[in-house]
Design a protein around this nucleic acid. Structure first.
Lengths: 326, 326
DNA sequence: CATAAAAATAACAACGTTGTTATTAATGAA
DNA sequence: TTCATTAATAACAACGTTGTTATTTTTATG
């Protein structure tokens, strides 16, 4: 049997309501009795009963993260960053890898104060009756009734293209998965195309479809790329994994980076620094993204304003060793 | 405000205790009233309050999985399999990626009925006071006070070696991370060595240290392997990622698989089938492992016997296309 | 038709908290 | 001292369930 506030009350010779107040550091109880009660509680190894508290207060201070796809390293990295970001808040985080609907049910049972949802594609939108939620990475979808945090893909591509242009590159190719069903991927290519046009390079626009998001998809795309009569001088890789494959393939072909070819990758995660070569990359840094998501959901819970904004975060370009002058 | 059993009672014209019984399908309430109540509950959109239930029943029917390392694909695969395996039980699963101690606290607050712990290395063992738990993959560690489920690494290596031997191979090399601090890796190499001796191949024992668990660690190890005057005819890869690198490297060197070289990988996950070549592999199939872990924790909870057994699961050899006669 | 037995339902006390209201103790002013 | 005022503590009703006990209704039996 666990020790309850009534046990503490008996031990300390006070009423249990006083114990409750003391444990919540209420100003209604005298300093010395507060200290005594706290000491007794400590001695008896008291652990508050969340269920009881929850029953009366209707708050759990727990946030549920729904993450149906445990596969992509970028998301894994984001998840652990979010978990870390919650440490400096009164909230803690639990995770479900079930599909969105099932996970929502589980979390509703627990009466989590809020939910964060990673939706993969633009499937059926969540029915967010009652419980505050926020989504990541689906901004291109039709109107939703909850806030969405996303990276500004267009701005990212603009920055990448401009950066390469300033280094003297004109022939800049985008290598990524060009899937019209996946709005995230679609936004990236379109962002690239727009950026090229903005920079006056519209006649150099070229994108290669990797037809997948994996390492080998990037690896094999290079083959195709180098068969061209006039290969580009710079590549924008569509994601961490793809860029990893591109990098490997280029080096195998004896192409010196960044001397013969510049490479910049989408996604800004710490792992970029420990790749085969420290990779220059563009994207919203995961820690920043995590911070933003955590603040977003907490604010949404506490200010209880259900306006469904979309927040697009500005990307950061992190210079490392894979880009150089043309 | 959510609808409670009292609301239902009022609506249905019965007492709320009858509603409770009806909702729990108790034989104490007449069939027709039961049906009526159920219908009213449905109509009113009743959702039971877990906190209240929990407060009186002291059960949550939730199991917490502690998974501090969201990185290795093998574990990610195992996690999603475990989650799926819980679907056919009355329990559901939530996840924490915090470190073991913090996660334990979170789960204690929630009063989960049990915990599954993935410990990375042999750090400080968990203090499992009170709450039933089960661990995966740390069987080589000193005595613990909770059950442990693990693969039988020795048996796996024995099977792999025997399989290759039957195909006519004698010169079989093990390529993996040989880290004396990581008991799991240690067990694998030692299992290999023992298996070779058992099979009468003690003078062919050779292992190459990849000095890491990543793709490239396997890739680069092949270089070293092929420089030998007498290269082996078969390789046992230490893990999914390592074997992926080995496979790629061999093909690049123009070595035909399985004609010139046989390759078998440790870890038995579905992804093995969709690698560059369908990979023959040895290990406990993840779905089986998941099933075993789920049953293990449930049994441990329900039979409430705290004997700390160690269960070593038998591996399965899955034949695909990377092994052939010598 | 009365009455015991069985079946169905209702009443109510838990469970461990919080927050509101009621009571008691300490303090200060006339 | 005596009484208002304030500070400190105690009492107690929630919260939404479950499970036990008490009451009512139905059914079976002589």
């Amino acid at each position: 049997m666990n020790v309850t506030i009534k046990d503490i009350a008996k031990e300390a010779g006070v009423s249990y309501s006083t114990v409750s107040k003391a444990l919540n550091d209420s100003p209604l109880v005298k300093e010395v009795t507060k200290r005594k009660i706290l000491r007794v509680a400590e001695d008896m190894g008291y652990e508050p009963n969340l269920a009881a508290k929850q029953l009366v207060r209707k708050k759990t201070e727990v946030i549920g993260l729904i993450w149906p796809t445990i596969e992509r390293i970028v998301l894994a990295s984001l998840v652990s960053n979010i978990s870390k970001a919650f440490e400096s808040t009164p909230y803690s985080m639990i995770l479900s890898v079930e599909d969105v609907d099932t996970a929502t049910d589980t979390f509703k049972k627990f009466q989590v104060d809020g939910m964060i949802v990673f939706e993969e594609s633009n499937d059926d939108p969540v029915d967010n009756d009652s419980i505050p939620m926020i989504a990541y990475g689906v901004s291109s979808t039709d109107h939703r009734s909850y806030p969405i945090i996303d990276a500004n893909h267009e701005a990212a591509m603009q920055q990448a293209v401009e950066y390469l242009y300033r280094l003297g590159h004109k022939s800049i190719v985008y290598v990524g998965h060009i899937d019209t069903n996946d709005s995230l991927q679609k936004e990236k290519v379109e962002g690239y195309q727009k950026a090229m046009t903005n920079t006056g390079l519209s006649n150099h626009v070229q994108s290669i479809d990797t037809e997948g998001l994996g390492w080998f998809d990037g690896y094999y795309a290079v083959e195709q790329l180098l068969q061209q009569e006039n290969p580009p001088t710079a590549i924008i890789g569509g994601s961490y994994d793809i860029s990893g494959g591109i990098l490997r393939a280029l080096r195998e072909k004896g192409i010196s980076i960044p001397h013969d070819m510049s490479l910049i990758s989408y996604d800004n995660i710490p792992q970029m620094a420990t790749m085969e070569m420290p990779m220059t990359c563009i994207g919203v840094p995961v820690d920043e993204l995590a911070e933003e998501i955590v603040h977003g959901i907490i604010e949404h819970i506490e200010s209880n304003q259900p306006d469904a904004f979309i927040k697009k975060l500005s990307p950061t370009l992190t210079e490392r060793q894979t880009c150089g002058p043309a």
